[in-house]
Design a protein around this nucleic acid. Sequence first.
DNA 1: ATGGTGGCCCGGCCA
Length: 259
Amino acid sequence: MKLATWNVNSLGARLPLVLEWAEANAPDVLCMQETKLADDAFPSAAFAALGYDSAHHGDGQWNGVAIASRVGLEAPLCGFGSREDVHGCRMLAATCGGMRVHSVYVPNGRSLDSEHYRFKLEWLARLRTYLAEHYDPGDAVAVCGDFNIAPDDADVWDPAAFVGATHVSEPERRALGEILDWGLEDTFRRFHPEGGIFSWWDYRAGSFHKGLGMRIDLVLLSAPLASRAVSAEIDREARKKSPKGDKPSDHTVVVVELG
DNA sequence: ATGGTGGCCCGGCCA
């Protein structure tokens, strides 16, 4: 069972690359973030042609999350289940192959003194509450997506460059820690404790080629799923321009394989 | 290392 997550930075712009990658790598479940699509523009037929059921939660232009699954997709839940999603189309859940899968796009935060940073902390607390209200840590739960948080200093290219910045601040790391403490594991960390492996690189200044990135895209698994994990990898190739000339997202794919 | 790019969709805003 291959579980993947990818901030595609506009599925409209990225569809050829995403389909190419899905065809070549055959994930069983692919969580996507920043689709930047309205629901009626989501290309469900293109995923169906590759054998995937799909669900999407977006209102166009910004944010937007999706799940594609070839092991079934049932009981989709948009937002945190409230009638009106005041949280910005950043969470979608569905049951796929016996797992409750969540595709999440945590707010960026912009800067520590921004109201958007307070919203980021509130959103993370909302996610923590949602998990506790809906599940037992003994359930098969996967929370996958762009957390806009580097869990550890080893997950950024130069911690000194981030003093006073978002993505590494103590409050947001603590908020992530509370989500993990509920009963989830940052699976990639177990397989790569050394750090220095990234999932996002700024488009500007040749950051990707210089290795100036961060690991902010995470696959969090509850114990029943974590115990099945046999590998966790980040596919740097998908951050490059494709052989067909399709331009990449600024994030690449994280893949966890379950036995 | 506050922007040099790239997405939204056409003038800035957002990451």
